[in-house]
Design a binder for these strands. Structure first.
Length: 586
RNA sequence: GCGCCCGUAGCUCAGCUGGAUAGAGCGCCACCCUCCGGAGGUGGAAGUCGGACGUUCGAAUCGUCUCGGGCGCGCCA
């Protein structure tokens, strides 16, 4: 609808240009908006005001000429000039009844568009290190990522959803060592656990499983383990201490290939937990991309080599540095440490090159806001490789604070008292969690009210929306109980009889949906959809309270049932995109 | 210190490629069921859009400065 108006306007302006009424070098991008006030019609444009200055013309006078030049269109009832020079469009009722009919025709596809133009997008989200269970911060990235993926697909992008698994590197070594130390404890050793080790109970669980399955196969005296290991903090060097422990573990367990076994056991257990957690949350992926596979395929070395050939690397203090300052970064970055280990950054460069190599010219990464400082260096690497830096789009998700009983829930990773995503899901349910997470703009800090999310009342927006949908189905059930049936054909024909203001505004809301989806997708803002659904639910409830749907007049009845059925379809479509269920009864 | 994000009604937040009297929910006050699920609806009170200056016919929206809050500035990931 909006696009049609846009075309009409373009035609009008062209006519004015041809007739010499207007002579502009360049026409500006036309802005047509939904009006806020019904007395201003359905759509409005400010072109006259925008052009007035260039054309040195009175905006209202110019608006009048534009209106006169507009081609006839059956969907446009009239145009008015208002205020300082707005042109308001009043649509014919048929424009709306046609849309209601098309909702029923298109069903779950209603609202989809092609604005994405089939562009291939690789969307990466969550990608938390498999060193422990997902917490509520990851949950927000998961909900946001999954909803954004759905939105992009609906808008005609080809989306590939990926989770980057950091299954190589030092953090995994620390994890394996943590498990081993707990295991040694279970073997009866008096273990002093390193400050930098992973403290959570889940480490004990993995260790216990290993102990049960392998007995004391990996047992070494703790005193032996500590030989030559630097002191732990705060007096000693925490990093050196943990690196020493890792080294000892690798040395002592090599023969039995125990190191690899423990490493794999820890990884598989935790990654398995993450996968299950996300699956239960309705968050899906097309691929779980392994960092180790990248290493083994030599992609990381190739990336480093490429930088080397370009002359963007230099050596200093035994390490290999990428001169990222050349490409807008604040400081240069290490890609290979003095101990020969490649940094996380090195494999991340390789990963992004790999994505491009797979034919994705658009990479959308969703990161926690604490990683924002990381953006310039990855962009720098892409630029250094001859890529356009905007092939990478990074969406940052701020953290969420939980509130229970009006009090902020204290979370601390260090003490292990963080709230896991699983605990959150169990407390408030998946629907509420998914909706609450995307209800706020992602870069906005959010306060997550657990009591509200859990409450089954109208205060809770999730229930409010789901209730609107259930209510429609309740009406359909009532209809059947009364021995009547919905004649869709007749209903569509009777739509022009729905002239009540409530009916008009419900139709407007329905017509707005495709525009809304486009906007939400282009801006990667699922919260727009969440707000829209709330508005739509409000329209439905208001209508419900004012008018009866199951009326004696058969034609009117079918018309109304047709209208609310279209609304029901939108609740299903919209909630599905957000990963929330649309129950028929509650 | 430098960089990024955020300051809008008592609370939680929309609105931000500049536009017509600044919106919603919660909370508060007053109402609405012989009727399809009241898990609903109607009305009301409530805001110097953190502050200042600037650009503009027009600024919550853009620019500069400033105050306040969060985060980041490792050979960690």
């Amino acid at each position: 609808m909006k696009q049609q108006l846009q075309q009409l306007l373009e035609l009008a302006l062209e006519r004015l240009q041809e007739s010499g009424t207007l002579s502009l070098q360049e026409l500006p991008a036309l802005l047509i908006e939904r009006t806020r006030d019904a007395s201003h019609g359905d759509f409005a444009t400010n072109v006259a005001m925008v052009l007035a200055k260039q054309a040195r013309r009175n905006p209202r006078e110019l608006a009048q000429q534009v209106v006169e030049a507009l081609p006839e269109n059956s969907q446009v009832e009239k145009c008015e000039i208002a205020g300082p020079g707005f042109i308001n469009f009043f649509l014919a009722q048929s424009a709306y009844t046609d849309i209601v009919a098309s909702v029923l025709e298109q069903g779950e596809r209603y609202g989809e568009s092609e604005v994405g133009g089939g562009e291939k997008v690789l969307l990466e989200y969550v990608s938390a290190n498999p060193t422990g269970p997902l917490h509520v911060g990851h949950g927000r990235g998961a909900a946001y990522g999954a909803a954004t993926a759905n939105l992009l697909r609906a808008a005609g992008y080809q989306v590939w959803r990926e989770y980057y698994v950091n299954d190589a590197g030092r953090q995994m070594d620390i994890l394996a060592t943590s498990v081993w130390l707990r295991y040694l404890d279970l073997c009866g050793e008096q273990v002093t656990f390193p400050g930098n080790g992973y403290q959570g109970d889940y480490i004990w669980d993995i260790a216990a499983t290993l102990h049960r399955e392998h007995g004391s196969l990996f047992h070494h005296p703790f005193s032996r383990v500590m030989e030559g290991v630097a002191a732990d903090g705060p007096e000693g060097d925490k990093e050196a201490h943990i690196d020493g422990l890792i080294g000892q573990m690798k040395a002592l367990l090599e023969e039995a290939e125990g190191y690899r076994l423990l490493h794999a056991a820890a990884l598989e257990t935790i990654l398995g937990d993450i996968r299950q957690d996300l699956a239960e949350f309705g968050v899906e992926y097309d691929e779980w991309f392994s960092e180790r596979s990248l290493m083994e395929a030599g992609t990381v070395d190739q990336a480093i080599e490429q930088l080397q050939l370009n002359g963007d690397l230099y050596e200093e203090k035994g390490a290999l540095w990428f001169r990222s300052t050349r490409y807008g970064d604040e400081k240069d970055r290490v890609v290979v440490r003095d101990n020969g280990l490649k940094t996380y950054f090195a494999s991340d460069i390789a990963y992004h090159l790999n994505k491009l190599g797979r034919g994705y010219q658009k990479m959308v990464d969703i990161w926690g806001a604490d990683h924002h400082g990381y953006v310039p260096r990855v962009r720098a690497a892409l630029t250094a490789m001859g890529q356009e830096p905007d092939t990478l789009e990074v969406l940052l998700v701020q953290f969420a604070s939980l509130y229970r009983g009006g009090e902020k829930v204290q979370m601390s990773t260090r003490s292990g008292s963080f709230v896991t995503l699983r605990e959150l899901r169990e407390e408030v349910g998946s629907d509420a969690a998914r909706f609450f997470y995307v209800m706020r703009k992602s870069e906005q800090h959010m306060d997550f009210d657990l009591d509200l999310a859990r409450s089954q009342s109208s205060d809770n927006p999730v229930y409010y929306i789901q209730y609107a949908h259930a209510r429609i189905h309740s009406v359909l059930r009532q209809l059947e109980e009364k021995g009547m049936r919905w004649d869709k054909q007749e209903g569509v024909e009777q739509l022009p009889r729905l002239v009540e203001p409530h009916e008009k505004s419900l139709m407007v809301a329905i017509a707005r949906y495709p525009e809304l989806l486009e906007s939400a997708a282009l801006q990667r803002e699922p919260h727009q959809l969440a707000h829209y659904l709330r508005d739509l639910a409000h329209e439905l409830h208001t209508y419900y309270n004012t008018h009866h749907f199951i009326v004696e007049d058969q034609g009117l009845r079918n018309g109304r049932i047709t209208l609310i059925s279209a609304a029901a379809q939108l609740f299903v479509n919209g909630l599905t995109l957000l990963g929330v269920s649309a129950p028929k009864e509650m």
